[in-house]
Design a protein around this nucleic acid. Structure first.
Lengths: 349, 349
DNA sequence: AAAAATAATTGGAACGTTCCAATTTTGTCA
DNA sequence: TGACAAAATTGGAACGTTCCAATTATTTTT
């Protein structure tokens, strides 16, 4: 059943026209007469023809392939899943289809999948680089004129566009908010110190404290895996300090949830006895108990913007690197509690 | 810089051999002499040649394309993200690359992306069908001999393979466990009643109650959106019953988390005052507070198995439909609490 | 050393499409 | 009706690869 392919030649034959004409109707060219167009389209439907983009693409090597690649370092992280969804939306409605690959932080794997995608003729790539990605890994790609947009993480020295969230400003706003509520011992919890994102966020924390004329205590900075379990571990350590913090900004929401878990394990009520602020605003942040105050980075929106930027570069034919930092905003929910003085007043009742 | 493509002809020319020879070394044929092979490979590296799979694939239309498609109905759901990761793992190590598309439950979108993938020459498809998918949507695909593996959801009447989790047995085990702990008013919360998955799980719930000689009360079945918010709504309704349930099995983990939230809003402690069991075992289930007792379905494992099944069919050239139900297992954590009598004994202290 | 066998290489056709230049058909105007 | 313009159609070459049959180079056998 349905062994051999139906080609334009078959269509042409059945419709009594030439293959050139069939090709023209496939491209919706205005050159072809209405009645022949109708006839050809009918035959196309009848014979169950399916367009062979591979062949088409071979001929028109000038034109682009309608395929883009997206490779992320950790698809199990819902942040990246959301990002992929955002990319998918704009890419899909532009008539493109996307190769998606997960590198699980392996640069070797990343190299392989990028090479494979290249052989398949992607006309652009959105990349959330694995830790340790070197500019040389992207070199061949940009040398052959394929636009690349880095998201979330930058690659030092690579001449490609990037779209990262404003880590510095986000963390600064979080700290300011806590200070405004009356806190002055604020911890910075979670994250691996060898990443650019960590350092940007940490710097935002430090700068905010300085701006508000508060001392920066290094023992209040506790790094850990950027996961829920890491959050538990980090708050454990922070609670051992002789002078306990009264609030924490966390590397990301996963850490923040872990911190809440750890607080509860110590009979402390997050939001009430201790203020917690996350980063990312993952979906669960709004429905968790307590709802998480966090920095919203809208990963889906970032995905959309990255895809738009990539498509723009593909269409322009020219890919001059531009670095966009995506603004973020503080979303105040319950986990950071009310102002300290107000709380004290209430507790007097 | 790097404007025009390097082709086998360029390689042949530079290495002083024919394009046929170059082609042979590209395919690692044993027919070619070691020294020429080395020479050709050197030139390939020097000129920065990249293989054009499109062209190759065009010629050898018998051979397959090394591309598979995966389309899911909701990538923002971490269950499907995990599934995609599982697929990615086996597909990647088999030298394939995957088109990934998200349909967001739209059958129209699904139809479009499947058509697009077909035009791009996928040699197999893994599909988690959007709600309302009809067998006719898959007809053309199977007619042209492209293997399809449905995951999570079946499509009635479609002659394709499927891999679904054992919903009936999973829910049955959950209910049995609760009955074993001493509960006899157990609610079934969440999910849309018009889906096959819902009905399979509900049937497991009913059968387990019957098996244990307990009555099935329809008012204890409260459907809702299969989300955290839906869980909150469902438990709200369940708590309005004059005879309240003491435990609940939930349509999935998201609902279960919502149920926990709702319980807390009523000053009830999930796991202590009310037993909750989820379904899916998403990552957060183990780190949540209380850790969620749930039915583990290992989405990543399902993804791997689905991919393996698909590759098997692709390689066999023959795609006889087989229906696999993936076994599940109850993972007991804290949200279902201790046995009722033990708890009563403890509370006497 | 000639014949036969084997190893290595090669030119051209083919895959399914698009593009170009050329041709045929149709329409318009004097 | 003839001349011209406009509209519609068309054949062949090309894209980058693989495959086949054929050729050439090398080795083995007698």
């Amino acid at each position: 059943m349905g062994k051999e392919r139906v080609t334009v030649i078959d269509i042409a034959h059945a419709a009594g026209v030439s293959k050139s004409t069939v090709s023209l109707v496939l491209q919706a060219s205005p050159l072809v007469n209405e009645v022949t167009r109708a006839k050809v389209n009918a035959v196309i439907r009848d014979l169950g023809y399916v367009y062979n983009r591979g062949a088409a693409n071979l001929r028109q090597s000038n034109s682009k392939s309608k395929i883009i690649g997206i490779v992320v370092n950790d698809l199990t992280n819902s942040f990246f899943a959301e990002l992929a969804v955002g990319v998918d939306m704009v890419v899909q409605s532009a008539g493109y289809v996307q190769f998606l690959a997960n590198t699980a932080e392996s640069v070797d794997r990343q190299r392989e999948v990028i090479a494979s995608m290249r052989e398949h003729g992607i006309s652009g790539l959105i990349l959330s680089p694995a830790r340790g990605t070197d500019a040389s890994d992207l070199k061949p790609l940009v040398a052959s004129g394929i636009p690349v947009v880095n998201v979330v993480r930058q690659v030092a020295g690579a001449k490609v566009s990037s779209l990262v969230s404003d880590n510095h400003a986000g963390m600064r706003d979080a700290v300011r908010h806590l200070v405004g509520l009356g806190h002055h011992r604020i911890a910075f919890l979670g994250g691996f110190p060898d990443t650019a994102v960590f350092n940007e966020r940490l710097q935002g924390y430090r700068d905010a404290l300085s701006d508000m004329d508060l001392a920066v205590h290094d023992e209040l900075v506790v790094s850990s895996a950027p996961s829920r379990a890491g959050g538990v571990a980090a708050i454990e350590r922070a609670l051992l300090l002789r002078e306990r913090p009264t609030a924490a900004v966390c590397f990301n929401d996963a850490v923040a949830f872990g911190v809440c878990d750890g607080l509860r394990a110590h009979r402390l009520d997050p939001g009430e006895d201790f203020a917690v602020i996350g980063f990312d605003d993952v979906i669960e942040a709004q429905t968790a108990v307590p709802a998480l105050t966090t920095i919203s980075v809208d990963p889906q929106g970032m995905g959309r913007r990255a895809a738009q930027l990539l498509l723009k570069q593909i269409n322009a034919g020219r890919a001059d690197a531009e670095a966009i930092v995506s603004s973020v905003r503080l979303v105040v929910r319950q986990s950071c509690g009310a102002a300290i003085d107000k709380r004290e007043r209430l507790s007097l009742l």
